[in-house]
C-alpha cells in the first residue's frame, strides 16, 4: 500500500515537471516578441535590448526555464505584463472564486450523479429509468454554455429571480446575495456532469447487479435491498471514483466557459483575458494551477480507490 502511494506520488511529480516544461515551451513560441510587446511600438533597439537583458530573455532557454521553475516553486510567477502587478495574488483571488464554484458543483455532481445512476440501475428498463436516461441524454448532448444562456434567459431575464452574472461580495451583499450569484453558474456546471456521472454509474451498477457474486447473494436469500446496498453498490462505486476524477477535469474546463457566460470573475475569465492579451506569465501561472488541481484530484482519486479496493489495500496473503 505505502509503495503504491509512493509510486503515485512520484508519478504525479514527474507529470507535473513535464507539464511545466510543456507550458513553458509553448508559451515561448508564442508569436510576438515579448520585449517588443512590453516596450511598445515605438521603442528603439536599445530599450528592447535592455528589457531583454532585464527579463533574462537572452539566456539559453533551459536557464530561463530553470529560473522560472525555481521562482514558480516559491509561489512567484513573475509580474503580469499587461496589468503590471504580481501574478500570484491575482491568480489566488480568482482561483478562490472559481474554487467556490467548483466545490459546490462537485458536491452536487457527486450526490446527484451517483444517486441518479444507482436509482436508474435498480429500476432498469422501468419508466423511471427511461425518464432519467432521457434527461441524461439531454445533459450530454447540449453544450453547457447553451444551458447557461437558457438559464440566464429564464431565471434572470424572464423571471428576474437571480442575477445574470458577476460575483457577489460576502461582506457587502450578505450570504444571500453572495449565494444568489452562485446558483446559476453552479447549476449550469452541474447539469452536464451529472448526466455523465449518472450514465457511467448506472452501467457499472448494472454490471455489478448482473455479476456472479450478486447471484450468489440472492441464492443466500438476502433481501434485495441489502443486495443492492451491501453487495452491488460497494463494488460499483469503485469505477465511479475514477470517473469523478476525470470529471474534475471537465469541471475545470467548463468553468472557463461558464465564467465567460456569467461574467464571473474567476480563474477562467482571467485566463481568457490573459490569452487575448498574450500576457505570458499570467497564462503560464493559470494553466499550471489548473493542471496542478487536476493532478491532485487524480491523485486523491487514486488513493481513495486504493483505500477502498481490498485488492490493492491488502496484497496476497
Amino acid at each position: 500500500m505505502s509503495i503504491y502511494i509512493l509510486r503515485r506520488l512520484m508519478g504525479i511529480t514527474g507529470v507535473l515537471v513535464v507539464i511545466s516544461m510543456l507550458v513553458f515551451a509553448i508559451t515561448q513560441i508564442m508569436p510576438g516578441d515579448v520585449a517588443n510587446v512590453l516596450a511598445g511600438q515605438f521603442a528603439d533597439d536599445a530599450t528592447i535590448a535592455a528589457i531583454e537583458e532585464r527579463l533574462g530573455l537572452k539566456d539559453p532557454f533551459y536557464v530561463q526555464y530553470f529560473n522560472w521553475a525555481v521562482s514558480a516553486l516559491q509561489g512567484d510567477f513573475g509580474e503580469s505584463m499587461v496589468m503590471e502587478q504580481p501574478v500570484s495574488p491575482m491568480i489566488a483571488e480568482a482561483f478562490g472564486r472559481s474554487l467556490v464554484l467548483a466545490f459546490f458543483a462537485f458536491i452536487l455532481v457527486v450526490i446527484f450523479g451517483i444517486g441518479i445512476g444507482v436509482w436508474s440501475a435498480v429500476r432498469r428498463d422501468k419508466p423511471t429509468d427511461h425518464a432519467l436516461s432521457m434527461f441524461s441524454y439531454l445533459g450530454i448532448s447540449v453544450p453547457e454554455f447553451f444551458w447557461g444562456i437558457v438559464c440566464v434567459l429564464l431565471f434572470a431575464r424572464l423571471l428576474g429571480w437571480l442575477p445574470s452574472g458577476g460575483a457577489g461580495n460576502l461582506s457587502e451583499d450578505g450570504l444571500l446575495g453572495w449565494s444568489a450569484h452562485l446558483v446559476l453558474p453552479v447549476l449550469t456546471l452541474t447539469f452536464t456532469l451529472v448526466a455523465h456521472v449518472s450514465r457511467l454509474t448506472r452501467s457499472s451498477m448494472i454490471e455489478a447487479l448482473d455479476s456472479q457474486y450478486v447471484l450468489n447473494a440472492r441464492a443466500k436469500g438476502l433481501p434485495e435491498r441489502h443486495i443492492v446496498r451491501g453487495h452491488a453498490l460497494r463494488n460499483a462505486l469503485l469505477p465511479s471514483i475514477t470517473v469523478l476524477a476525470i470529471d474534475v477535469g471537465w469541471l475545470l474546463g467548463n468553468i472557463v466557459v461558464v465564467e465567460a457566460v456569467f461574467s464571473y470573475p474567476g480563474l477562467g475569465r482571467l485566463l481568457l483575458f490573459a490569452i487575448e492579451r498574450h500576457d505570458l506569465p499570467l497564462i503560464q501561472a493559470g494553466i499550471l494551477v489548473i493542471a496542478l488541481v487536476y493532478c491532485l484530484a487524480n491523485l486523491a482519486a487514486d488513493l481513495l480507490y486504493a483505500f477502498l479496493n481490498p485488492k490493492i489495500r491488502y496484497g496476497q496473503l
Binding site: Q212, Y213, L215, A217, R218, A219, G221, R234, N235, P310
Partner: peptide
Amino acid sequence: HVQFRGRDIGIVFQDPFTSLNPGM
C-alpha cells in the same frame, strides 16, 4: 421463496473466483 433460499436450500456455483464479492 427468499425465505427458503440460503436457509432450507444452499447452493454452490461453479466458479469460486467470481462467486465471492471481491469487496467484502
